[in-house]
Design a protein around this nucleic acid. Structure first.
Lengths: 238, 238
DNA sequence: CGCGTTCTTGACCCATATCAAAAAGCGTGG
DNA sequence: CCACGCTTTTTGATATGGGTCAAGAACGCG
């Protein structure tokens, strides 16, 4: 199926607020096939693939978390998204990855050759539609991220980030008021286009204002989700 | 063809450096059909469609230029791209546009019902592939734009913008050293995530350093394209 | 020529980056 | 369990790029 080669990369970004998650591919025959594919374990900081690698496989996160990022010529890093269990990554364009995928905590990841995917797609027409939707969703997610990092204050960005993570919890049935961050402050900073100091300061500010609690640095309790939401949408100015 | 409904929007962004342009749909049967479609004229500031409009048509710019943008809750505007002659805009998701398209100079635009596109797609399998490529390209372009507006200085952004416009000239056979801007400073600012004052100041700075010349405000002569290129890539710090 | 719009320039300010150092975690080995 | 060293996070002091506000200058256009 030729159209697959037009793909770039599929991942999920927590900023996306729509119900549909870009990196989810709810396709029966695909999932059947994947459930038989082999699982590999990745340590934190280990790369699943890097920019320039031939894109031979697609991957589904079974546990853990992965960051997807590009590196600018000057060495700065832009994280494009974080992939959580259930998310797919690694559908590459022109046979070559255009970003890096790196585990941010111990992860189990299932991989499947792209050739197999192509084969399924020819026998299951609904897959091409599913994939299609996935790119469109991803495009929307990327635009969301751009709007967030482009014009918003640090407070708004962090609030939007927290709300998005909370939504993700909601989706996966976890407590929507408690967020366990799989990523470091560096990751958050590189995702939101801020520095780690600003992320940290902003979190303490939110804590001081009573919007969140920080029992540990990796755990965030959303004390006032409504207000956070308003902040995230730029309707409140702290 | 069901997969079309997954589309969001197709446009071209001048920041994209790849040879393939996202908004170009080089498909024979599509172009045949379009060449018979009706042309409408739009005055500057006139909207082709706005966010929330039902997406019934796709459009091809025949002459003039169009900006595509979203408006943030706080009223700020992010221009996602500029569509030039030959570019397609307006393939909407779920029957509803998710952004606004506004002529920025007098434009002639051909429109075609989405239903007709669907019909062609069923009879011409290559069209679905073409469309597919277009979304993937657009995704890549959006990422480029995000990398540009996310982490870069005003100088780098403006330089990248000029280089991209120059590349577009090159593509369409125009003089690659002279850029006639169809858009205002406001448009440039909203595209690059800057203010008009900063755009203006940056242009004067580039002029002072001898990298460009500004015979008129809408005309930019690239005096030192190589240096501009280096600036755009963040390899030079002015 | 005069009026409205767009562009440029200047002065000032603020949010965030930068630089620096202290504090808190966290794993390892004794 | 504690001590040690390393990494991550927080906090503080300062700098700065670009935003904001304001006023001209240039550019159409009737």
């Amino acid at each position: 199926m030729a159209s697959l080669s037009a793909f770039t990369n599929i991942y999920a970004t927590p900023l996306r607020q729509s119900a549909g998650e870009s990196a989810r591919l709810p396709n029966r025959s695909l999932n059947d096939c994947l459930s038989q594919a082999l699982i590999r374990r990745f340590d934190p900081k280990e790369f699943v693939f890097v920019e320039g690698d031939p894109a031979n496989n697609i991957y589904r996160i079974e546990s853990g978390a992965v960051s997807l990022f590009k590196v600018l010529p000057d060495g700065r890093r832009q994280i494009l998204g974080f992939a959580y269990p259930g998310d797919f990554i690694g559908l590459g364009v022109q046979g070559e990855h255009i970003m890096n995928a790196q585990a941010i905590k111990p992860a189990r990841i299932r991989s499947m050759p792209l050739a197999a995917l192509h084969k399924i797609a020819t026998s299951d027409p609904s897959l091409s539609f599913t994939l299609y939707q996935a790119v469109a969703e991803e495009l929307a997610a990327t635009r969301d991220l751009m709007m967030t990092t482009g014009h918003r204050s640090a407070c708004e960005r962090v609030a939007a980030f927290l709300i998005a993570l909370s939504r993700r919890n909601e989706r996966s049935g976890d407590d929507l008021g408690v967020i366990d961050l799989p990523m470091t402050r560096v990751d958050i900073a590189d995702f939101l286009g801020l520095t780690i100091e600003t992320v940290s300061r902003t979190l303490t500010k939110l804590k001081t204002r009573g919007l969140i609690d920080l029992p540990q640095s990796t755990r965030i309790v959303l004390a006032d989700r409504v207000e956070l939401q308003r902040l995230a949408e730029g309707e409140e100015y702290l």
